[in-house]
Design a protein around this nucleic acid. Structure first.
Length: 919
DNA sequence: TGTAGGCACCGCTTGCACACGCT
DNA sequence: AGCGTGTGCAAGCGGTGCCT
């Protein structure tokens, strides 16, 4: 029997056994052998012959680089799991640190694609009687979390994943209901064998066996102590995850690749046609050596004194490419920035165009337009850094836009080389330097801060059980889905279908405040306008995940079938929660919350530890933070596999309850004034240290959630606008939230006086200083206002920069950014077309009409042609609409001024008219 | 080609009341 | 009187960026 099926009683009791067992013999064959498969692998001992044998089963493309694993291989790093369609087998890629080579190991257990169904075996055989790819059925048992019952199922096996799902006549279309039929095969392979990408495995007699890291007994003991008294399931999770956290992360040998392509003026080279020559390729390796492979057909002399990198010259483009491919194949990990859509796509198509032999082209294109490497793995940093969860939670929003230049500038403090010319005008030396710098920046994005990014990627890959190249291309809901699927499978739990969850639990019962939303969300406490001295902001530590944990929220525990549980109601909703079963998402989210808060978070800052221990702890805590912060939201997102609106709704409702009760307690029991609050925080006026302590204790006793102090404001200015305030901390640091002066689309002209005013306010120590500061602020602003009247400004200072969030033809409203984008298209027909993500800069002008355009637009606005803005590229100073600029300055600064009691019309405008009266 | 909902602000769009002029 | 059209206004809505 399949080892995964032996735990017929379901639930979690077999998990520890399972882990133990998997260490000894992970991949013991489970199925009765089917001898149909012609490629059965009795590998010869002779190495050369061995290669002969394998050659026929390897795909043509890139096969020169593939090295098959020997019968026995020392501990190697599991970097990838894939499926080989020609051989109908899963394989893994192992990086062996001893010889620094990547080996490919094909499944030796005859693991097969399958689906599960409640249809009886005889009926299945009837349905599939003419199917050549059908192999047979097995009877298996699973535990169904949704109804808490063991269930007998038919496991339908096929030779090929496409037979199961992915075609119009796949088995999953014919056999209904079918379960677990839409999981990609290589992921199934990972789950079934409990593989963890990023851990060490060795091959013994052609079996893949996990190598356990050594754990310090002391560390283990201390961590177990954190979870003392918690349920058995949680303790098992700790055991399961400690090796993932503490296995060393080896420094992966790797290189970055960046290409430059010959191009005509104002034309972007098209990687699909690849009609232009590749003129240079920069490669940087882990020793920080950069080499630029440059095409020099006319053998122009290169002045080496002007060059800081290594150079290899080629007079034939095809030779250049072949050499680059060969160099890339030496690395288990190859990094690009946007390689999926440009560099590698271009190289691939260009190589075909130049008739380079398939066997030396290392790329594999997938249906979803990702590009994998035959031998190593391809990490496209553009895809990784683009993830909102990564941008915000792992990097604190350090970069705004996902471009190589901005990432380099904000994370590395290293900019792309600037030049006035365009690529095709550069001389060879300039081209080499430029290309080399891009390759360097790309590489350093993975190596800065002791390889922070690469370690983050590997740690998240271990936790989510996704191969690195899948993981870096997928979004956060897929990460969490995969993580939870894995945890279902190793517990022998049936993975529920989204439709079943929805049918049983789908309804929400609260009304959202914003039209079009599914349920009610957070509370924002009405701010008390004014200047407040000595203000504490208290907030709950990861409130939503904490609620999921403490209140046992999960798709199977919400609205369970037990009559007795119905009394366990959730505030303001119709939902109740199960008291008999521990919810799987509650358990998983709770576990990573606890271990982050109680272990890794402190250790990331603990000066008594070594630097190495600190950075590793930091990598782990930020990985966990990324998952935690998304763990609530995914349940409210209909493209999440375990989508369960009542779970999300209940989480939000319980959070509302927590914050309201806290406000009430603070006001009524402690007699303090609550000035403001948002979601998980309250602003308290003048609490004593004892007050704060009492609140912390009360919160722990009432909700089992930590309430901590975030900022202590010397003073804090609130207006009547929510999510809109600023304060100066006791250390003199200004904290600004939501004010227009901070928004990225506000023109510099308004931002500058805003910043100045803020600086003045930072120095204010007491109410008397404030009056003084007000005077100075008024003067500053008046000066700016006068300058505007006299048109004393640069055009750039007025630019409003906005990101397009949709394609041009999808806009239903004739908005200003759209007007500017269309003018750009009309005036620069060969230029880069504005589209999703483009940053458009424009200035406000008096209304004017543009020539009727033949750009495809939505029906609603296709006839519009009157514009109120001009893109900065086309505008003159004389176009500027002065009253509108003043309006803009006013609305930006008024947010700041009215909180400190300055009236715009009296202090700024009124004063000005007096001035002019006297002069 | 998505983790959620709540909020501020800008400016276009739309619907309505009303005036007006024509038949 | 009945109808179409122009005008001014306010509310609604689309869009962007932000907060938690």
């Amino acid at each position: 029997m399949n080892q995964n099926n032996k735990d017929d009683t379901g639930a979690n009791k077999g998990l520890m056994d399972f882990i133990q067992e998997s260490q000894q013999d992970v991949l013991e064959s489970n199925y009765s052998e089917t001898e149909e498969n012609g490629n059965d692998d009795d590998f010869s001992d002779d190495e050369e012959e061995e290669f002969e044998d394998y050659e026929q089963i390897l795909e043509e493309k890139g096969k020169d680089y593939v090295l098959l694993a020997p019968e026995n291989l020392s501990a190697s790093y599991l970097i990838d799991v894939k499926y080989d369609g020609k051989n109908e087998k899963a394989y893994v890629k192992l990086f062996n640190p001893d010889d620094e080579k990547v080996y490919r190991w094909y499944d030796s257990t005859n693991h097969l694609p399958y689906l599960l169904t409640t249809v009886k075996k005889t009926d299945v055989e009837h349905i599939l009687k003419n199917e050549k790819e059908y192999i047979g059925c097995e009877l298996v048992k699973r535990y169904n979390r949704l109804n808490q019952k063991n269930i007998s199922l038919t496991k339908v096996l096929a030779t090929n994943p496409l037979a199961i799902g992915g075609r119009s006549k796949s088995y999953r279309e014919k056999i209904k209901p079918s379960f677990e039929a839409n999981i990609r095969y290589h992921l199934n392979y990972i789950y079934d064998n409990a593989l963890v990408p990023g851990l060490f495995y060795e091959i013994v007699d052609n079996k893949l066996i996990r190598k356990e890291p050594r754990l310090q007994d002391e560390v283990k003991k201390n961590i177990m102590a954190i979870f003392e008294g918690q349920s058995k399931e949680i303790l098992e999770l700790v055991e399961q995850y400690l090796p993932l956290f503490f296995a060393p992360i080896p420094s992966l040998k790797r290189c970055s690749v960046d290409i430059e392509v010959e191009s005509e003026k104002n034309k972007i080279p098209d990687p699909n046609t690849a009609t232009q020559k590749v003129i240079s390729v920069g490669i940087t390796n882990e020793k920080q050596q950069t080499c630029v492979y440059v095409l020099n057909e006319n053998k122009k002399p290169i002045d080496r004194s002007k060059i800081t990198v290594d150079v290899k010259e080629f007079d034939k483009e095809s030779e250049l490419l072949i050499e680059v491919f060969k160099e890339m194949s030496r690395y288990p990990l190859v990094i690009t920035f946007n390689g999926d859509s440009f560099d590698f796509l271009y190289l691939n198509n260009r190589a075909k165009k130049l008739s380079i032999e398939e066997s030396v082209i290392p790329f594999v294109l997938t249906r979803t337009q990702d590009i994998y490497l035959v031998n190593g793995i391809h990490l496209d940093l553009y895809r990784f850094f683009r993830q909102p969860a990564i941008r915000i939670y792992a990097f604190g929003g350090a970069y705004e836009r996902n471009t190589l230049d901005e990432l380099g500038r904000t994370l590395l403090n290293k900019e792309k080389l600037k030049h006035d010319k365009d690529i095709w005008e550069l001389n060879l030396e300039e081209l080499i330097e430029y290309n080399g710098r891009d390759a360097e920046i790309t590489f350093e994005l993975t190596s800065f801060k002791n390889n922070q990014v690469i370690e983050l990627i590997i740690m998240l890959s271990r936790i989510t059980k996704m191969p690195i190249d899948d993981f870096t291309r997928a979004s956060i809901s897929i990460w969490i889905q995969n993580w939870m699927y894995f945890e279902h499978r190793i517990r022998n739990n049936l993975i529920p279908r989204q439709e079943d969850i929805l049918r049983l639990k789908g309804d929400t019962s609260t009304e959202a405040i914003i039209k079009g939303k599914k349920y009610q969300g957070a509370i924002v406490i009405e701010p008390q306008a004014g200047v407040w001295w000595n203000v504490y902001t208290l907030d709950f530590a990861s409130l939503y995940p904490s609620i999921i944990k403490t209140r046992n929220l999960s798709y199977e525990t919400i609205n369970c079938s037990h009559q007795e549980c119905k009394k366990n109601k959730i505030h303001e909703t119709k939902h109740w929660i199960c008291e008999k079963q521990v919810g799987i998402s509650s358990m998983l989210v709770g576990f990573i919350r606890d271990i982050r808060v109680y272990w890794f978070k402190d250790r990331a800052k603990d000066q008594s530890l070594t630097e190495r221990e600190r950075t590793q702890s930091n990598v782990i805590q930020s990985s966990l933070k990324v998952l935690l912060n998304a763990s609530y939201g995914v349940f409210g997102s209909d493209n999440f596999a375990l989508y369960c609106p009542p779970v999300a709704e209940s989480t939000a409702a319980l959070a509302r309850e927590a914050i309201s009760k806290t406000k009430q307690y603070t006001e009524e029991k402690l007699g303090l004034k609550v000035l403001y609050g948002d979601t998980d925080s309250i602003f308290v006026h003048k609490p004593t240290p004892e007050n704060v302590k009492e609140l912390e204790k009360w919160s722990m006793d009432t909700f089992q959630i930590e309430l901590g102090t975030d900022y202590i404001f010397r003073y804090c200015c609130l207006s009547d606008r929510k999510k809109n305030y600023f304060g100066i901390t006791t250390k003199g640091t200004p904290i600004v939230k939501g004010l227009m002066g901070k928004k990225k689309n506000t023109p510099e002209l308004a931002k500058k006086p805003f910043e100045k005013a803020l600086k003045i306010l930072s120095d204010v120590q007491n109410p008397d200083d404030l009056d003084n500061a007000k005077e100075r602020i008024i003067k500053t602003i008046k000066r700016v206002n006068q300058k505007i009247s006299k048109r004393e400004f640069e055009l750039e200072e007025l630019a409003i920069s906005v990101t397009l969030s949709k394609k041009i033809e999808q806009y239903d409203s004739w908005t200003q950014p759209l007007q500017a984008a269309i003018q750009l298209i009309i005036n620069f027909p060969d230029g880069e077309k504005p589209t999703v993500g483009s940053l458009i800069s424009f200035i406000k002008t008096k209304p004017f009409k543009i020539q009727s355009h033949d750009i495809k637009l939505s029906d609603k606005i296709s006839k519009s042609n009157e514009c109120s803005v001009k893109p900065i590229q086309l505008a003159n100073k004389s176009d500027v609409d002065i009253p509108k600029v003043k309006e803009l300055l006013k609305s930006t600064l008024i947010q700041l001024l009215d909180t400190i009691g300055i009236s715009w019309s009296e202090s700024i405008e009124g004063q000005k008219s007096l001035d002019s009266w006297f002069s």
